[in-house]
């Protein structure tokens, strides 16, 4: 029974990682850059939702919508002012700029909201459901997280597979120059990608803070790194890959904590990642690109 409850908490933590990883993987697939500031957008989402609930007394759903709006605007603004001028620059220059944006967001948050941890109250309350004759309990937030993850997954698959915008995105990720020649506005597609990624980050932020209710300016950093590994784990650039990678990473982390060692849980997560990458160098669902001379 303990195993089952660990599995459930693993899946719900993994769902948060998956939602963050989707943002990473979409941006990587289209803009070919590692957006290190993504983790800090999560933190901003958490704070907006926190203040919406505690200071302005808004309904949690309104707070979530507000967080999504703020993060979307923030993501598009970051792309416009920090990354767009570097479209032709070396990838390392873009990486360093992303790190600069990450420092900026963390320090701005520290000045605006101080580094004292804020206690976040869960957006769905602290309801627990007894299951299997009360032998295990499942919290509502765990169910909500898994549900949100599934809904997001279905919407994203539909969006990239069926809509015109999704088709344009896939074209851009294949070949930007050819897409431009076909009349696709690559800049607009990249902006939309950042908007979607940041909106997902806001959702992830609210869910993450509902699960682990302390909120500090560096809240987003570690989940950001882990979600990034999850995206690579599943094969970066692949949407189902990010999903699978995120959920597996969450399960491994919780199982490692429960059965092997609490102190070594991070080492276990990263060791599994290394083993997977050595056996499958392009991730679980990544495409193998053959090199032509």
């Amino acid at each position: 029974m303990a195993f089952l409850s660990h599995l459930i908490s693993g899946i719900s933590l993994g769902s948060v990682y998956a939602i963050i990883a989707l943002g990473y993987t979409m941006v990587y697939g289209i803009a070919k850059m590692l957006n290190f500031a993504h983790g800090d957008v999560i933190m901003v989402g958490g704070y907006v939702s926190f203040f919406a609930a505690s200071a302005w007394g808004l309904h949690p759903v309104l707070g979530l919508l507000l967080a999504i709006t703020v993060c979307t605007v923030l993501g598009v603004a970051i792309e416009r002012f920090a990354y767009k001028p570097l479209r032709q620059a070396a990838s390392l220059a873009v990486l360093i700029t992303a790190i600069g944006v990450s420092y900026f967001l963390q320090n701005a948050a520290q000045i605006l909201w101080s580094s004292n941890p804020k206690v976040f109250s869960s957006i769905v309350g602290n309801t627990n459901f007894p299951m299997l004759d009360g032998r295990i309990t499942v919290s509502l937030i765990a169910l909500a997280t898994v549900g949100a993850c599934i809904v997001i997954m279905i919407l994203l698959t539909w969006f990239t597979g069926k809509t015109r915008m999704g088709k344009a995105m896939r074209a851009c990720s294949e070949d930007k120059a050819a897409a431009q020649l076909m009349g696709i506005s690559v800049d607009f597609v990249i902006s939309v990608t950042f908007a979607v990624g940041s909106a997902l980050a806001a959702v992830a932020g609210v869910l993450l803070c509902s699960m682990y209710p302390t909120l500090t300016p560096t809240t987003g950093a570690m989940p950001g790194i882990k979600a990034f590994t999850a995206a690579v784990f599943g094969g970066i650039g692949s949407i189902p890959g990010a999903m699978l990678g995120g959920i597996l990473l969450g399960i491994i982390e919780i199982m490692g904590k429960a059965y092997i060692s609490t102190q070594l849980s991070d080492a276990i997560v990263f060791a599994v990642l290394i083993i997977v990458l050595l056996l499958k160098p392009f991730g679980l669902l990544g495409r193998h690109v053959t090199e032509k001379v």
């Binding site: 990587y28 590692l34 790194i225 990034f228 590994t229 690579v232 970066i236 060692s261 102190q263 070594l264 991070d266 080492a267 990263f270 060791a271 990642l273 290394i274 990458l277 050595l278 160098p281 392009f282 991730g283």
Partner: peptide
């Protein structure tokens, strides 16, 4: 030996992972 078999971003993420593992092991 294992890391240098990989390329590009995959190599970068594995070095990141090793850095975190070393930090975690030393704390124990």
């Amino acid at each position: 030996i294992p890391v240098l078999r990989l390329k590009g971003d995959y190599l970068a993420i594995v070095t990141l992972a090793f850095g975190e593992i070393i930090k975690n092991i030393i704390t124990c």
